[in-house]
Write a protein that binds this DNA or RNA. Structure first.
Lengths: 136, 136
DNA sequence: TTAGCGCTCATACTAAAGTACCAAAACCCA
DNA sequence: TGGGTTTTGGTACTTTAGTATGAGCGCTAA
């Protein structure tokens, strides 16, 4: 954001000085003022496009924000969600248990509840649905 | 693209007519020509940003292209890849078999080979790796 | 024409995954 | 402090997933 403001300011200054330079031409009647305006407008347009692109690539637009609202809507608890994330990492129930410091039984319980809440038959299907819901 | 050209043309026309309107003010000496230019520049800048954003959201920049090169590198066959895509859809081996018109045994064979080639222990892990490799 | 590869399928396992049901701590909140 | 929810864990069982191995068929390049 700071960057944008800076570039924006520089842009205006550049334009005003550009105008000062072209003023001589305007006075002499060779260069029409419309052209000067159109030129500056075109330049600014492309600068706008450029800046927007820059910002877009810097912070990937499709950094899918996690839809916390949907998590509550589906009544997915904290622990269940933690398990879901580990599933998306390709871990087995046992591995998830080790990572979250609980038994495999507990993980199975969470997974089972998760599948019911996501209306999935398998963990792979749960992953697909979760992605569609922007949950992961 | 056509849209962009259209908007761009409309923009220039609008600016020129804007200038025509403001010309009276310029002649009367109340409104300085610098302000007119700066104003048009600012408008064009934001229009550029807006259009760029529109384009970005319309056709997602991060439409991950499938890395066919990597598929060959990993020696993943046509059929195996078809199975992989079905796995990402959350289907079971049996369901995949029905969809591809082969037996569950065949699907199992493909999955097994797939896991070996992707160096995964489970299908969920295979999904994760495949995504990292931009294969799906 | 034969060796190699891809695709198919089967059997027989072992290993995970998932279900159902129960139950006891732990936690939060009114 | 009682009550609902979450988290945890267990047993017992069914269903998928995954491995290993072998084998037949069709295509293709040497």
């Amino acid at each position: 954001m700071k960057k944008t403001v800076f570039i924006f300011s520089a842009l205006i200054i550049a334009l005003l000085s550009l105008f000062q330079l072209s003023q001589y031409a305007v006075i002499s009647g060779d260069l029409k003022i419309e052209i000067a305006i159109a030129f500056s407008a075109i330049v600014c347009f492309f600068v706008g496009v450029y800046i927007s692109k820059k910002n877009a690539t810097h912070q990937p637009i499709l950094t899918k924000k996690i839809d916390t609202h949907k998590l509550k809507e589906l009544e997915i608890t904290t622990r269940e969600y933690a398990v879901l994330k580990q599933i998306s990492e390709g871990l087995s129930n046992k591995e998830i248990g080790e990572k979250l410091f609980v038994s495999e039984s507990t993980v199975k319980t969470h997974v089972s509840n998760l599948l019911a809440k996501l209306q999935a038959k398998r963990r792979t299907e749960a992953l697909k649905i979760a992605k569609q819901l922007q949950i992961i």
